[in-house]
């Protein structure tokens, strides 16, 4: 039993399961999945689809947080990426041309990568605190997005582009497939190469990493660049789903949701050990929360109150000072033991 509860993915998974079950009680048909027109439909599929952008952004954020950093600019990058892609597509004579869409998507992703690279340079080369360094792009980025769209919402009518965030492929939403592929590739990249270990080393102990000869700067720049690309893909999905680039609202507050997803997933904000699977679970918890509130008829804006409660609980439980002060009178410490050997092994091989 202890091996199960001690696993680092136990709590985020448990929270997710409880939330899903609660939905099932309220809405009996919640788990039903139907096939219509060769597409899968159902609340669970909706959660996956609507949660796709957040899963991607949180994925990038996880890697940055593993190095002991943070990226506040992801929401702005989401807006910029969608804006650029839609701007390029709307300028084409045939918006439905696959080649044109591919070029637009490629350029949007390149720009996202450049923005992430810029953040990385500020953190690793200029040596500015990550919160401050990425704040610059967070402030300016939304302006850049609106600059691209000239302040208007750009509507596109492009079936190939629509596929990215709203289409289906092999009966599944295309976005979900993209997320699955990106998560799998990232998992392979960090766990099959030495990348994950070296990132964890940097976040776990920067000075020791320097003395062991890890070239931290490059890896940190790489992490921020990757985070930028993830936010870029998420931006494509969001704008594709509604066939509109909205420089003002696309990805608004997404950085905060992403950080939240990472923390709920069990990766500490201080850096070091990270878990991609946990982050995916964390993002799904947030999306399920939003969906649940939506289906119960509470105004969606009120979701924020629940999020605040979740952030507070998760952070307080993670805080050693809180545990020491509140659980002081308990006979035994309530803290779960550090990841068991079995759990660590799963992480290494995951």
């Amino acid at each position: 039993m202890k091996a199960v509860t001690g696993h680092r993915l136990f709590w985020p998974a448990a929270v997710l399961v409880v939330m899903l079950l609660a939905n099932l009680v309220v809405t009996p048909g919640f788990f039903s999945i139907q096939v219509r027109n060769g597409h899968l439909y159902g609340s669970l599929i909706d959660i996956l689809l609507l949660g796709s952008p957040l899963m991607l952004v949180a994925l990038g954020m996880t890697v940055v947080i593993a190095t002991g950093g943070i990226d506040l600019s992801v929401g702005a990058v989401v807006a910029i990426s969608g804006a650029l892609a839609c701007y390029l597509i709307s300028g084409q004579e045939d918006q439905g041309a696959v080649s044109g869409v591919l070029v637009a998507v490629a350029l949007a992703l390149v720009l996202s990568a450049v923005l992430g690279f810029w953040n990385g340079l500020f953190v690793a080369r200029v040596g500015i605190q990550p919160i401050i360094a990425t704040l610059i792009l967070m402030v300016a980025g939304r302006g850049v997005a609106q600059l691209i769209t000239s302040g208007k919402n750009i509507n596109v009518n492009s079936p190939p582009y629509k596929l990215i965030g709203g289409g289906y492929w092999l009966t599944l939403p295309f976005a979900v497939i993209v997320v699955a592929v990106v998560v799998a590739l990232t998992g392979l990249a960090v766990r099959r190469t030495a990348l994950g270990m070296l990132l964890e080393a940097i976040g776990g102990n920067a000075e020791a990493s320097r003395l062991v000869g890890i070239r931290s700067r490059r890896l940190i720049v790489l992490a921020y660049t990757f985070c930028g690309v993830c936010a870029g893909i998420a931006g494509l999905m969001i704008s594709s789903n509604i066939s509109t680039a909205d420089g003002n609202n696309a990805g608004l507050w997404m950085e905060l949701d992403a950080i939240l997803a990472v923390v709920i997933g069990g990766t500490a904000l201080t850096g070091g050990r990270f878990t991609l699977a946990g982050t995916v679970l964390g993002a799904l918890v947030i999306q399920t929360l939003s969906t649940t509130i939506y289906t119960t008829g509470v105004p969606p804006q009120v979701t924020l109150v629940f999020k605040a409660v979740v952030v507070a609980i998760v952070c307080l439980i993670q805080s050693p000072a809180f545990r020491a002060k509140v659980f002081r009178r308990r006979a035994r410490p309530a803290a779960p033991p550090p990841a068991s050997p079995a759990a660590a092994d799963v992480e290494v091989n995951a």
Binding site: I259, L269, V305, A308, V311, C315, S319, A321
Partner: peptide, 16 residues
């Protein structure tokens, strides 16, 4: 008192 990073604590405050 609970040594929560100001960024996170005030983020929760913002949501609330």
């Amino acid at each position: 008192h609970f040594e929560i990073q100001p960024f996170i604590a005030t983020l929760a405050g913002m949501f609330l």
